[in-house]
């Protein structure tokens, strides 16, 4: 399973994007009871979600569609299948800390950590939450 994800990661993000969606389907099918209700979030994940949705904090919804987020913007890519796309948690943390490292200095996404918009602890929680998506 992990090697499959890795293979997909290497083979290109666009493919990964769709496969990532497909990957979650069988696991739902295997547990029909859990399929209907969204899995409960841990305290950290719940806090991460609040930080991501809050306009005065992460405000990720300004640019990203996120499951259950109302009125998202469409400037950035949809935040979905994050665990499959970022199997290494640190990579995901780093993108949020300072997206310029990965996307170049022209990127519109604010450097959440580097510009002290969010603290390290807050970004950790956001990452925890993103991993549930």
């Amino acid at each position: 399973m992990t090697s499959l994800i890795r293979a997909i990661t290497v083979s290109g993000a666009a493919v990964l994007f769709t496969t990532g969606l497909a990957l979650s389907a069988p696991s739902f099918a295997a547990e029909p009871a859990a399929a209907a209700a969204a899995p409960a979030l841990t305290k950290d994940q719940e806090e991460g979600k609040e930080i991501a949705f809050n306009k005065a904090q992460g405000n990720c919804l300004a640019c990203h569609a996120i499951s259950n987020g109302q009125l998202p913007g469409n400037i950035g890519p949809m935040l979905i299948a994050m665990k499959a796309r970022y199997p290494n948690k640190e990579d995901l943390f780093n993108v949020i800390w300072d997206p310029r490292k990965k996307f170049g200095r022209g990127v519109i996404m604010p450097p959440m950590g580097d510009h002290k918009i969010l603290t390290k602890e807050q970004i950790d929680k956001v990452v925890d939450y993103l991993y549930t998506l």
């Binding site: 993000a13 994007f17 950035g76 890519p77 990965k102 996307f103 170049g104 200095r105 022209g106 990127v107």
Partner: peptide
């Protein structure tokens, strides 16, 4: 493209193809 950060441009909603 360098400025746009070619490295990781997946299907983002960026309207223009070149900045």
């Amino acid at each position: 493209l360098l400025i746009a950060g070619l490295g990781a441009s997946i299907a983002t909603a960026v309207a223009g193809d070149a900045k």
